[in-house]
Design a protein around this nucleic acid. Sequence first.
DNA 1: TATGAATGAGGGTTCATTCAT
DNA 2: TATGAATGAACCCTCATTCAT
Lengths: 214, 214, 214, 214
Amino acid sequence: MREKRQKRQSGNGDFTRNRVFEVAAEVFHRKGYDNTSMSDVASAAGLTKAGLYHHISSKESLLYTVLDYGLDLTEAYVIRPLAGISDPLERLETMIDLHLRLVLEERNLEVTGLLHECRTLSASDRSRINRRKKEYVRMAAGIIADVTKKYNVKDVDPKLAAYALLGMLNWTYQWYKTSGSSTREEIVRTFQRIFLQGILGSAWVDRQANATAH
Amino acid sequence: MREKRQKRQSGNGDFTRNRVFEVAAEVFHRKGYDNTSMSDVASAAGLTKAGLYHHISSKESLLYTVLDYGLDLTEAYVIRPLAGISDPLERLETMIDLHLRLVLEERNLEVTGLLHECRTLSASDRSRINRRKKEYVRMAAGIIADVTKKYNVKDVDPKLAAYALLGMLNWTYQWYKTSGSSTREEIVRTFQRIFLQGILGSAWVDRQANATAH
Amino acid sequence: MREKRQKRQSGNGDFTRNRVFEVAAEVFHRKGYDNTSMSDVASAAGLTKAGLYHHISSKESLLYTVLDYGLDLTEAYVIRPLAGISDPLERLETMIDLHLRLVLEERNLEVTGLLHECRTLSASDRSRINRRKKEYVRMAAGIIADVTKKYNVKDVDPKLAAYALLGMLNWTYQWYKTSGSSTREEIVRTFQRIFLQGILGSAWVDRQANATAH
Amino acid sequence: MREKRQKRQSGNGDFTRNRVFEVAAEVFHRKGYDNTSMSDVASAAGLTKAGLYHHISSKESLLYTVLDYGLDLTEAYVIRPLAGISDPLERLETMIDLHLRLVLEERNLEVTGLLHECRTLSASDRSRINRRKKEYVRMAAGIIADVTKKYNVKDVDPKLAAYALLGMLNWTYQWYKTSGSSTREEIVRTFQRIFLQGILGSAWVDRQANATAH
DNA sequence: TATGAATGAGGGTTCATTCAT
DNA sequence: TATGAATGAACCCTCATTCAT
């Protein structure tokens, strides 16, 4: 998606270019966007400052690309795989799993922590990123609505619930450490349980009881 | 629109100083710490840059004070009131209420959004702030542990649950708008329900049924 | 001498004022004039910055006063006592003694090290200080001329010799330490010998031989 | 008047860098280190402030380089040439000649006047400079010791005598003017005479008598 | 592609000085 | 006398960006 970049002939051009984005994501996340200088990015990428500018046009465009790339990953790792799942509850469970997998293991944690740097973008870039962010919220709210409808839960606002869920999932970038005490699987299980039982109540309890019974 | 400078009297010193902190919290939140210049803070406080330095010693110390003050507010608005509540479930419900009240209405939203700027602080300041943040997580985990013990829930790790809760609560700074469609009360009710039913399951359902019956 | 300052009635006004000068001389010497802030001077004198300005009119005037005071000391400790000595050789010996006594013990070392800060003074202040410095060189050259004339030494330019002597004497501020290995008396004796024998040659040798013989 | 900017070629880097050091030495000497702004240095070097920082890393490091370079010059112009001279007296005479030649003509005067700015350096830089300064004093004292031993002079402390000599030589930066009344040769002759006759007494007188006789 | 050199703009901070109280 | 607060100017330094080579 997003065919902004034309094909180039030189062999490793795209290779270098992509390394720049990955490196930039990492450095932006580690030091903060404003606190990262183009020198930092350049030397982390093994380039000189002037060399860096052969691959990008400005610091801001680099941020845009990094954020956009992060959302591309979300699309590839979370949104598209969900399309194949028809049962609403299973989709929701899977979404929690995939989202955490992406954030905690695919280095996308970095991008999550950068999402609020949108502020810095130009108006048009910002609105493009925001549109994609909102799409994701809308998708989550949609899945939740399907689940509550199926299980006949009435008093849950899907949008608010989606915000609650995304808060749980994204806040992990504030505390998760690879070397910490909880594995990703534990986190996934716990969060699935809290959120699903949270919106479904006894319906979920019953389901789990059945599942275990089998 | 804040008159420029009223007649000065002795004792005004602390007044101005406190105004600086409040203004700084607001500006740091709005523009981001790194992207805020001391000129920005100064003029928002109705001072010149040099005048600002009469009240603080450095930009970094200003950030520290703002964060520390935010945590003071948390202590005053959330932690201390909870001390008077003995029933674990009621404490947890109240904590969610007070925390959201603080974040969404007492202008502490600003500080919440700044918490990850810790990075910028000196090592000693950073560790002081981190200690207080961890204490809060510990407190939340403690309350959750009390609740699960009382209701005989076995398979919830209190620390992970606390992170889930704080994610839900704090992420609000990313999406909440005073002018938005949800009132604070709705959010409180929804989040209480999702989280409490999430960890307690049928125990919570039963309790709510009873409460409604009365 | 220099009646710039009028008499004041308030009891300890002059006391404080003089302390300011002494303290300023010390601080200027220790940190360098440009590197000393008025805050430094004020707090070293036990005053606030604004309080300091009740005693002086500007930083530059403070430097002028300090330098001028140092030259007053030279007049009092070196120049005037020499007036009573009629034998040229004895005057020269005594001048070396008194000058080193002043520089090394009367805290005037500080002023000596400041003499080249003249640069900073206003044109008129600078020329006043320079006039006094030149007077001192002229006096030294005069004494040297008397000595060489008396002992019939022909090939010594008194002015150049005076510069050599003042170099020896004043450079001490670069290396002398109260706790060092040489006492002031040793320095005086060595420098007297080097300079006097240096300009007089055998005449000085003979004289010393006689002196010892008696 | 130094053309603004000639065509640039590779290799010009070191050229510009060295010009920066020379210019800085001159400006620091003329205005004093603290009183010299980086703008002053930059524009004296035909650069902008930011451009200047391509060649140096800080004002302090620039001072260090200037001082270190001055000591390099001393090594090249004074210390090394002396190594080839075996007769102690001739070495001392030559040292006076070369030192004054360096200070008065090779523009090193500037550095001499800066030596006491050491204060500003970082601890490690300062100690490196001080070590070199002490080495020079030690060398001078060594030469003096050789001379007095050869001529059987007993009562001269070589270290004190070295300080006296260096005072004479270095103080020149306070009064020497190219346009003044004394030529460098006169100064050299006078100072050689005063110092050598000063430490050797009749031994030197005799030697000079012989030299003249031939 | 890649780079060393350069720069205008702006950053945080300090300073000598003033003034109402 | 004394002071806390305030300020304009200046300082050192960094940054994103450009350009000749």
